[in-house]
């Protein structure tokens, strides 16, 4: 469903992504790992359409279309969902108003009628149940005053309501205690199916104990330098990233 080829992107003249290639098929879970500053979050934001990043070379094909031609909202309407590393607080907009507007904008794009209040509420309640969330969350302003864990769970809740085809989870595990991590990963596992793809961007492999990836990629200095299976993640956990850096140097030499 997603085919990234030789993607280069920069911000303020600094090149961050230096030729990324990645294939994601429906039903697959990919983990992208790497140390701080390797370009993991940049990749997420470029895929979601954050305009401050400039794509200087390469292509991104999504469901047969050129993703880079789409505005951020159209990417979302086409089924891409970014779970933010730092979910944004929006005082004055309630979660429920936000979600209903988003869902109905997406439906409109696909020529569907908007969901009326009661129908929408029914859908939302199903999702809160799946994720074991408290309804009071709906009435609160988006992410305002939420704890770190609540913010991350709210991202997954939005994902549950909007039902994306491709979810990009940007450091969804960071800042979570073990209970919150378990709750968030349970939610993700429940939403996983054979038709959607998931890209998990993470620093640590601990999330991968709960959500088992089909593929693990190591991002270093703006490039995917190594790909493998879950075992690669365990190896990284044990040995850190230095051995990969060493490998890289040897290759260059």
């Amino acid at each position: 469903m997603l085919s990234i080829k030789n993607l280069h992107a920069s911000i303020g003249g600094n090149e961050i992504l230096k030729g990324i290639s990645l294939e994601v098929k429906a039903g697959e879970v990919h983990a992208i790992m790497g140390p701080n500053g390797s370009g993991k979050s940049t990749l997420s934001k470029v895929l979601a359409g954050r305009e401050e990043y400039e794509v200087t070379a390469g292509s991104v094909e999504y469901l047969g279309k050129n993703l880079l031609d789409f505005s951020p909202e159209d990417r979302a309407r086409e089924g891409i969902f970014l779970a933010f590393q730092y979910p944004v607080e929006i005082p004055g907009v309630t979660n429920i108003m936000f979600l209903r507007t988003a869902l109905n904008e997406i439906r409109k794009y696909h020529g569907k009628e908007p969901l009326e209040g009661p129908e929408f509420l029914k859908l939302v309640r199903e999702k809160t149940k799946i994720l074991d969330l408290d309804d009071s969350l709906l009435k609160r302003p988006v992410n305002e005053g939420f704890s770190g864990g609540e913010k991350k769970r709210n991202e997954i809740f939005q994902m549950a309501v909007l039902e994306p085809k491709l979810a990009i989870l940007d450091e969804t595990d960071s800042g979570l205690d073990i209970d919150a991590l378990r709750a968030v990963s349970d939610g993700i596992n429940k939403l996983k199916n054979k038709d959607n793809g998931i890209i998990m961007v993470t620093h640590y492999q601990r999330l991968l104990d709960y959500i088992v990836p089909d593929f693990v990629h190591v991002l270093l200095n703006g490039k995917i330098v190594k790909s493998g299976t879950r075992e690669l993640a365990l190896e990284l956990e044990e040995k850190g990233y230095d051995w990969i850096r060493e490998e890289q140097k040897e290759e260059v030499v």
């Binding site: 951020p72 909202e73 979302a76 929006i90």
Partner: peptide, 21 residues
């Protein structure tokens, strides 16, 4: 960007934020 990334078009997103303000 957060609102847009959820499928909300720019004019709508701006109106929501202005209203929220």
């Amino acid at each position: 960007f957060y609102l847009q990334s959820r499928g909300i078009g720019e004019p709508m997103a701006k109106a929501m934020l202005t209203h929220a303000f």
